[in-house]
Design a protein around this nucleic acid. Structure first.
Lengths: 239, 239
DNA sequence: CGAGCAGTTGAAAGAGCTCAAAACTAGTGG
DNA sequence: CCACTAGTTTTGAGCTCTTTCAACTGCTCG
């Protein structure tokens, strides 16, 4: 069930057989969530963390008057709230955007990992630091990229992250969310997302339709986004 | 030298005498940096991490055409690049904004901590997760807060973080940076920062002058910012 | 005393927002 | 099989916040 999670770990680290066994044994159960269901509530003591097995989820923060900002999208294989292990409670919600299968890991098992498996601990620590790196790239997008650049950048990021777990086929990947949810990722209004999508489409870069993203020209797309995948910390490719 | 760092750890965790000794022993040397000097370069293998002893520093990312975004401000006592221990290299630069004293911690000593001190390891892991929480709040600011709200929010955040290490006196704290650097934090232009500062001043909320912030009305300031310090994960106050 | 940087001001332009309505799409029930 | 409803996408038009560009002030420092 957590093959994609292991796949993602292996894309960045060497994992021993023993460590793989520990990771597998850390899962207590699998749960299914419907779209819009809360996977991890904010400001509530938590006793488990969650790995996304399939589907799409996000971390979201709200202002009192209802304005909502998504701070990260979670793809299959991601530990969505590993940070709740040390933080005890979250400053944001984790929400299912589509139907999701989720693997549940009780915190006591993570505690045991930190007590007995320092190398694996460092790997998971790395994992939360990678989330922070993604946050920083989003800060850069929101602060300095134009609407067109931000949207292009998001499509690039998802391309790379989903490709890592085999979910890109033929330069197409699933992204079954609404334009309004895209707007919540980008700090924009749904109307402006719509117009910006039209521009990306008319320039032949990328198409977002029917829950799918079709990347027509990744080179030009990442150029307009000024996308540099270094912040995703992939192992350097062998040649 | 790292009293403020320990003070900050104690504000959120219980630290044993032994752990305190380990933390103190992890420092190899103190170095001084001038304003604008790079403390940790991006995309370069790193062998040490840095704790800010005094001064002000930041994490910054650039786009190819020179647009710059600061992703976090670092206050005295902060581990500025603890994440480089697991990431090995950084996706951003760490830069001194004012003259800074910095304590240097070689990564081998951090490795030893992860091998022998799991509780302290979790505390430091918490520390990087706290940085991520701050990143998320900045994502919310950049995505959904207005210029006025964002600026107010930044002043609130710094108020709480600096108060933690005794740097707020009489509702005033040092912030010796330019309006242009403030703009780089907020994803705005210097001109607009200037006008927004005037607005905050004229409303009697806060004044930014001569390298100092004078908070005239924290209650109304945090109200206009929709500031909720929960994301800074302070220990709940005893009553 | 002049150079240079930070801060301030004004006017015009523009990116993105708001509001509102229309066009689609898909699911529901008679 | 066809209304009917609800949610999503699309379009139009006007408006606002923020940017851009340029000039000017004031301060510090060599």
């Amino acid at each position: 069930m957590i093959e994609r999670h292991l796949q993602k770990l292996r894309a960045r680290h060497d994992i021993s057989d023993e460590e793989e066994a520990v990771v597998r044994a850390s899962v207590s159960e699998i749960r299914r969530y419907r779209p819009d269901e809360t996977i991890a509530p904010s400001h509530t003591p938590l006793g488990v963390s969650n790995i996304l097995v399939s589907g799409l989820a996000c971390r979201a923060k709200d202002l009192a008057d209802g304005r909502r900002q998504i701070t990260e999208l979670q793809t299959p294989g991601d530990y969505m709230d590993l940070h709740s292990f040390t933080l005890k409670q979250l400053d944001h919600e984790v929400i299912a955007l589509t139907a999701c299968d989720v693997a549940i890991i009780p915190h006591p098992r993570l505690l045991e990992i930190t007590e007995r498996h320092p190398h694996l601990t460092r790997i998971y620590w790395f994992g939360t630091n990678l989330d922070a790196a993604i946050h920083r790239e989003w800060v850069l997008s929101l602060g300095r990229r134009s609407a067109l650049e931000s949207l292009a950048h998001l499509f690039c990021e998802l391309y790379v992250r989903l490709d890592l777990v085999g979910l890109v086929l033929d330069s197409r990947y699933p992204l079954d969310i609404t334009q309004a949810q895209l707007a919540e990722c980008l700090g924009m209004t749904p109307v402006h997302v719509n117009r910006t999508l039209q521009q990306l489409r008319s320039e032949g870069l990328v198409e977002f339709r029917d829950g799918w993203v079709a990347v027509h020209n990744f080179a030009r797309l990442s150029e307009t986004a000024q996308f540099d995948p270094a912040y995703l910390y992939l192992k350097p490719r062998r040649r």
